[in-house]
Design a protein around this nucleic acid. Structure first.
Lengths: 144, 144
DNA sequence: AATTCAATTGCATCCTGTTGCAACAACACA
DNA sequence: TGTGTTGTTGCAACAGGATGCAATTGAATT
């Protein structure tokens, strides 16, 4: 992670921003907690190590990290979850009954977006889609 | 609107629910305000006529009306907007630069959902999708 | 190492949305 | 028209998220 962090440090300093301990802790927390992390989980994690950190600082840094494209935000229902920005954007199928999450490659969605572009001349630009429905297993169970 | 309301009254009474003045006002407000109405707008509208109405009552009734399928909720970013449930479910393309909203018929999206079902055996069940991107006009402007 | 300046933090405060609970009232039934 | 059941409301309190502002501090420069 250290090379990751130092890249990050260089990157943001070049743009006149700063690498504060709070900002580091927040980025580290997202790394460690993995995918689909809620702001609250990040806040709790960070306060374990720096109890005096303020909630507003967490939110402001999440916005900042998203703007820098180091972190991506996904809106799932009403809540926003975060994760480290990977090389490829990806999407999620979430089962309404068992909450299982299936990852969808960007290509599967891109085809749809291109069709919309052809028909409506509208260029959809979303790097994360969340689609709810019924997973194979729950579908089978519901038809017994 | 009166026949609509009386249908509504019969419908919910049959299920053991009640038609309160607050509930009526909230439904009326959504009718009058049109599509993509925020809870806050509904609350303001309703308090104009019944100042003593409580915010919690508005939120609880929005949930109720959604459960009764008289109203549909759409999640746009972090916020939830409501509108009267039409005969056909539909979707929206929203331009990031000019905020223009383009309505998308369900058929256009269903094709995509069916493709996902074939490939992933996952049945997507969403009656409202919101896709962000660039509308034809703004796209043209941005390429001058 | 000291200086400087703007990015950032913490605090206070506000706003939206949720929940438990006691009081109220819609409406089915007599 | 009165009465009882229970769905519903208003209130109070709370949780997550956003914002204005004064104080702090990262880091570039000397």
């Amino acid at each position: 992670m250290s090379h990751y962090t130092s890249d990050f440090a260089r990157l943001i300093r070049q743009q006149g921003y700063r690498l504060t301990p709070q900002r580091q802790l927040i980025l580290d927390a997202i790394c460690e907690l993995g995918a689909h992390v809620t702001p609250e989980a990040i806040y709790r994690r960070v306060t374990e190590r720096a109890p005096s950190i303020n909630r507003a600082t967490v939110y402001r840094n999440l916005d900042f990290l998203c703007e820098q494209r180091l972190v991506v935000a996904a809106h799932i229902g009403r809540e926003t979850v975060y994760e480290i920005a990977g090389a490829e954007p990806h999407h999620h199928l979430i089962c309404r009954t068992c909450d299982k999450v299936i990852t969808l490659p960007h290509a599967a969605v891109q085809r749809f977006f291109r069709a919309l572009q052809r028909r409506y001349s509208f260029i959809v630009d979303m790097d994360h889609l969340t689609l709810f429905g019924l997973c194979p297993k729950c579908r089978k169970d519901s038809r017994l």
